Computed example of a mutant assay.
Amino acid sequence: MTILVAGATGKTGLLLVQELLDQGHKPTALVRESSDTSALPQGVDLRRGDLTNLHDGVCDGMDAVIFAAGSGGSTGPEMTDKVDRDGARRLTDLARDAGVTRFVMLSSVGADQTDPTGELAHYLKAKHATDEHLMASGLTYAIVRPVALSNDARGADVILGENVDKSAKASRADVAHVLAEAATTGRFDGIAQDMQSA
């Protein structure tokens, strides 16, 4: 499969594109002009595009799209809105217009709430709006909502759905594996679910 990955140069994204390559798929990294692509593995194609200002056609020729990007923990609410909400929704629309088969969203635990509170409230509102937009888009979708991320190695298993402990951790390696599986197998089509490492 040809798979566009937004956020491919991030910690989770790098693991994801390697996972896709290992499975025999053809990942394409959506990168800004200023992105450092030196850590991307050989075999990953590049497609230029900025999530704050995506151009038409960015999803053309893709079988699936995975949104694994984020504005980053050091940015403010404005950039969260531009990337995590507006950029993700624009990418969803472009994927639909391009006839993409499946869209996989890396979301967050708590994004199912319509009115979250606490220090992550703005971020979770942006993620909620994005998830809702994807679910209403008409695209075949899967939404993965991991708990707090860690840099641990991939574990023996993951826990998905209602049995997730929201205070637990999810390794980025496990998240990357689930995202790849969601994009390539259809196992999680039409599902939005929490996730943790077992």
Rank of each mutant, 00 (worst) to 15 (best):
T2C: 06
T2P: 08
I3D: 00
L4C: 06
V5I: 11
A8D: 02
G10I: 06
G10S: 09
T12I: 10
L15F: 09
Q18E: 13
L20H: 02
L20V: 10
D22F: 04
H25A: 11
H25V: 06
L30A: 06
L30S: 05
E33I: 09
E33F: 12
T37Y: 10
T37P: 05
A39G: 03
P41E: 02
P41Y: 00
G43P: 11
G43C: 10
V44H: 06
L46V: 10
R48I: 12
D50W: 11
T52M: 13
N53V: 02
L54H: 09
H55L: 14
D56H: 12
C59Q: 08
M62P: 00
A64K: 04
V65C: 04
A69H: 07
S71D: 03
T75M: 10
T75R: 14
G76F: 03
G76Q: 09
T80L: 10
T80N: 09
K82I: 08
R85Q: 14
R89Q: 15
R90P: 03
T92P: 05
D97M: 09
M105L: 15
S107I: 05
S107G: 06
V109H: 07
A111C: 08
Q113F: 05
T114H: 11
D115S: 12
P116T: 10
G118P: 03
H122F: 14
Y123C: 02
Y123V: 03
L124A: 03
K125M: 13
A126P: 05
T130L: 00
T130A: 15
H133V: 00
L134F: 08
L134M: 07
M135N: 03
A136N: 15
S137A: 08
S137V: 06
L139D: 08
Y141E: 00
A142V: 00
A142H: 02
L149W: 11
D152H: 12
A153P: 09
R154A: 15
R154E: 14
L160P: 00
G161D: 06
S167I: 07
A173F: 00
A173K: 02
D174G: 04
H177S: 12
L179A: 08
A180Y: 03
E181F: 04
A182G: 05
A182V: 00
G186T: 07
G186N: 07
R187P: 00
F188R: 08
F188T: 00
D194Y: 02
M195V: 08
